[in-house]
Design a protein around this nucleic acid. Structure first.
Lengths: 223, 223
DNA sequence: CCGCATCCGGCCTGATACTG
DNA sequence: CAGTATCAGGCCGGATGCGG
């Protein structure tokens, strides 16, 4: 079904499963929370429904995704990661950090979705950066996600949680610069780039806990 | 130039750079050794030269690859990974281990290249599995690669080295089963599936040092 | 509505041939 | 050696339709 590379190589097999357009982002969204077809379609602006259908089927065949009936009212179908698919999470997080290393200012058409924000928080989590347990809610652009951080574990999810958080953050894309260390938390707050509900000390802890540095890698092309 | 996903997300950016067909395998080959155009073309059976040209150009623009004149006699052009590209190595190794978890017997048309064999050895290296330093040469199918293993570091390369190794291994695809723990080193030797130049004790050390278990993840598809 | 299947224009891939 | 040129076929992107 899926196009292979004709090599007996783990990376080649992985690439034939995950290398097609949209596949990695589908797994990303499912790694944050089980999704219905509609959730995936809305969280992946631009994906045609036919391609989403094909990818979900191929990911099932590859043993990455399962399709189960939704028990919640309204019915529908829930897509979930298998254990094999869940094993991709740390790899996707590492790839996300790598890709974030060259991200500074978003392109005009760049959007942030709930799932991508949650995945970014999970990827940026610095184990041992703090010795307390804190709950966060982050709003940036039209996206919302929550994170519960303990000293050595992180739990994230899309959207807003039911319970109030220790710190709620409202920001635009400048949050990227703060997490990269390019903009100090104090400056971000005083300039109004970031608005918080909670104490500035907890915001500084947030910045320490989720730190994604810039690696600035774009180099000249010789041609 | 490269197609983007319109998301301000590290994983989406990484996917637009590495997600196109052949890109990951090009980076894999370059992570093992600098390559000339011809080396890449021969190490990636089936890739059209036009696609290879396009990918190399896109990877240069993304700051992953550099193009330099070869100093060696005969001249030519050498492609190398930038520091940003080299940062992908542990991620590719992890992806390779993930993909290898479902690999058992190769398809009839599956080949093994020097670079993929070297990358597989690097990916399978178990830090701390041994307290000695050993040099290996592995032949499997038409591919050859070498590895120098210290207790906590691995160096690999394609082809055969100049110096003789502590252990030389000749095998077919059964080596995969041995490294997965499905076939004991002793059984592999006595059955003739693996032939070695060196001591069986060192071969057992090899198997401990490069261990890639099967995770068997293929699941039923509901439809 | 939700989860697809179908259809169509256009771009990309894959194969071959050819050039500096 | 290191690519460019060309072309058929397949996949992607976008719109529409349809059964439960």
């Amino acid at each position: 079904m899926v196009k292979d590379y004709g090599q007996f190589c783990g990376l080649a097999k992985a690439s034939s499963v995950l290398g097609e357009r949209w596949s990695l982002l589908i797994v990303r969204d499912l790694s944050v929370a089980p999704c219905r077809f509609k959730d995936l379609h809305e969280g992946l602006p631009g994906i045609p429904t036919s391609v989403l259908t094909t990818r979900l089927r191929d990911l099932q065949v590859a043993g990455v995704v399962t399709r189960v009936a939704d028990e919640l009212p309204g019915g529908g179908v829930l897509y979930t990661l298998t254990p094999h698919g869940r094993a991709l999470q740390p790899i996707l997080d590492a790839l996300g950090r790598w890709g974030a290393g060259t991200m500074t200012t978003p392109q005009p058409e760049d959007v942030v979705t709930d799932a991508s924000l949650a995945a970014a928080l999970r990827a940026g989590f610095q184990q041992g950066a703090t010795d307390t347990t804190t709950s966060y809610v982050v709003h940036t652009g039209a996206a919302t996600a929550w994170a519960d951080a303990t000293p050595d574990a992180i739990t994230v999810g899309p959207g807003a949680p039911d319970r109030p958080a220790d710190l709620t953050i409202h920001s635009g894309p400048q949050l990227r610069a703060v997490l990269a260390g390019e903009l100090s938390p104090a400056a971000a707050l005083s300039s109004g780039a970031v608005r918080i509900e909670g104490s500035p000390e907890v915001f500084e802890r947030f910045v320490r806990t989720f730190h994604v540095p810039l690696t600035g890698a774009a180099e000249a092309v010789s041609r």
